[in-house]
Design a protein around this nucleic acid. Sequence first.
RNA 1: GCUCCCGUAACUCAGCCUGGAUAGAGUGCUAGCCUUCUAAGCUAGAAGCCGCAGGUUCAAAUCCUGCCGGGAGCGCCA
Length: 552
Amino acid sequence: MKDVVVKLIAEEVDFDICEIEGLLEVPPRSEMGDYAFPCFGLAKTLKKSPGVIAGDLALTFVKVLPKEIERVEASGAYVNFFIDKGIFARKVLGKDYGKKVLKNGKRIVIDMSSPNIAKPFGIGHLRSTIIGNSIARICEANGFEVVKINYLGDWGTQFGKIICAWKKWGSEEKLESDAIGHLQELYVRINATDEFDDECRLEFKKLESGDFENLALWKRFREMSLVKFQKIYDLLGISFDEVSGESLYNDKMDAVIFELKEKGLLIEDAGARIVDLDDVGLGKVLIQKSDGTSLYATRDLAMALDRKKVYDFDRAIYEVGAEQTLHFRQVFGILKKMGYAWADDLVHAAHGLYLDSDGKKFSTRRGKTVYMEDVLGEVVEKARGNLEARGDCDNLDERARRIALAAIFYGDLKNNREHNMVFDVDRFLSFEGDTGPYLLYSYARASSILRKIKFESKRQDIKYKDFGDLEFALIKKIDLFDNVVVKAYEDLSPNLIANYCFELAKDFNEFYHGCPVLGGESEAFRLEIVEVFRVVIKKGLDLLGIETLEEM
RNA sequence: GCUCCCGUAACUCAGCCUGGAUAGAGUGCUAGCCUUCUAAGCUAGAAGCCGCAGGUUCAAAUCCUGCCGGGAGCGCCA
């Protein structure tokens, strides 16, 4: 429909097609039309006021209106176009929104979730998990093959600390009853003092050089953590194509350091080895500590090199918190310096932090943590309570779970990915208004209507005419879906999908109240709207990782 | 000290990349709507120097500069 308007304008105005497309906008309110062409830009060349130009253009267009456009009006400096609703409705509702996406032959690997072993699964990793999952689905919807990797934080000096603390104060009994809780407790305790720092570094050094006892401890802590994490992933309904971790690259570190040396990038500095990125404003990056052990950046370099070799990706996305922005810039910068052009295909899709009520970042180092199990459990309980109050108790567990997840996923994804946000359990505990449950509810209402009638037998009765603003608004919203999916990929922004789903559901609920579907003249037409809405919102929610419910 | 991000209604946030018509939503508040498809819903209302000051532009919440306030990061943590 937009093309028709653009073509019409192109015949009268001396701009090329792309220019006109860029200028054409959607008016702020529907009474003003469906498309608007601003005439400010023409004022200089035509030496007339924008208002006059708009008036003249409108008069010209009226004489040559194609059938797709119902009427044209000048309003201020704008020429407003009103499209033919019937033609538009037939076109929009006739599309197959549920069809399978054609593969574009390109591959994306995405690092997501990445919790740290021996620490509680925190709120920040929840963000990475939920956003990463959604980004993966959005990529798939845009034709990419996606490999989801859970890249565990399972190596590094902190394990020297934990091992050291365990040897001093560890309790077998506490470890068996609550492994992560106990290890966390030990970690906080040893961080409270710098007294044992040398000892801790030594324990890590032993671990990295394969000390039997330390390796066995590390393996045990890792296993225990993974069991716990898996429970959370099962509840979230999120899985990975690969569970990897920093420890995997332990034996590839020497090769990286060798290559950096070969390429003349490694510099001795105060006994340690660094890469200097001052020339690109990224400072000096520590690659090898003076005791010879590796660092985060070293491991990430090895990992990126290995990833490229194993997956030969077209793009690699790191869904990691914004506090690591500098780190990723440095890693990408070093790869670039090493001569790898594909470093440009690496992207850090940073997410903002959850701040506590004081406006400060949550930090496990300071022992401040929100326990994911508690939050999830509380939300599921609330959902279950609501369902029970409604008196319908079939399949209670699964329905409560889906409602809770909708609340949590949507509560996170509706926000701009890169912005910080205040953590508040009430955000997830609210099921009314702009929330996940509202979206599920809208879907369930649509399903409920379609359950009551055999739509197939009515299909030939559809008349695409004589419908009102409520139907039209909903159809126009449906029409935007495909563009939103593309844009969400370009920006790697699930919140565009989330915001769209809410607007779509809102339009549907307004339609639902104002337009009785069953019985009456336009039953078949309205049924088709309901059916298409149902497909589109299901698809949208699917891109957010949210499963729908037929009944609520 | 240096770098990056944020500042929009009482609260939580969209919108900013790509400038356009009266700046949006949800919550909360006020007043209505269940003998017809699910009230986790709908309708109406009150509520905004879009942090401040300059600049660019026909036009700035949006772009540029400075300032103020908050956050994050800055070689032997990840």
